[in-house]
Amino acid sequence: MNKIIMLTAALVMVLGLTWGGVALATPQADQAIWQSYYQKRFPNVPKEDFINGVYAIDPVSRESWEAIEEFPPYEMAISQGEKMWNTPFANGKTYRDCFPNGPAIAGKYPYWDKERGMVVTLPLAINECREANGEGPLKYKKGPIADILSYLRYQSRGQLTKVEIPEDDPKALEAYEKGKQFYFARRGQLNFSCANCHVQNPGNLLRSDILSPALGHTTHFPVYRSKWGEIGTLHRRFSGCNKQVRAKPFKVQGEEYRNLEYFLTYMQNGLPLNGPGARK
């Protein structure tokens, strides 16, 4: 009996090693595959340049984008956000009381909160700070939340993406796995996964739009999108993508999107933060 178990264990190990990326799908292995995939696909793009989204792979639109970045459409948002940061709440306290290391704190998020057993994102932490100080929460898609995020992320520019999945808590890995499943699952009447466009087809044309590679996808948020005519958050973008494939979007800052953000940001580890950004 023991022999059989040993034999089976050995067989499983051998198979596991042979299958490589499939059987040993640790977050580290996923991340290595993810980052290498895009670099192999776009060998002339330096890795750090992927933070510039589609402009990293399309020299034509890059020119007009660089012109836009000279007078960035998110400048007002940054100064609005700075005002928010410095204005005391009704109780006399400020955001700094919640975030003593602020304002350059974006690199810390999202993180796994072991006590609460959940992924905490920066917008969530901002609203929790407000509520702890007797202020109403901000809406998560646009407006004041995008302003203060713009300021905090601007102050954090150059910090490296460094999401951790603590090995001493299997629930953290579970959240990561859920985010990964979300990313690769087809959904909606049109049956698209996030990956159908941004893993399978970056550089290809969806009508006249070049699809952007997913390497670097989280670094530049919040983003001023010409299509929106204003600044929006990462979860607003998730929600919009889901609607486009005719799936019912999930709650912004709900568990699904927070796990998705956890996975997607982990995939970008090592890339510098460059938010807020401007995109088509």
Binding site: G20, G21, V22, A25, D30, A32, I33, W34, S36, Y37, K40, R41, K180, Q181, F184, A185, R186, R187, N191, S193, A195, V199, Q200
Partner: peptide, 19 residues
């Protein structure tokens, strides 16, 4: 659709393309 997708992960073409 959701049930058919519940075990998806990195697709084979991505793993192949990373090598």
């Amino acid at each position: 659709q959701a049930m058919s997708q519940k075990d998806v992960g990195l697709p084979a073409y991505m793993i192949a393309g990373s090598k």
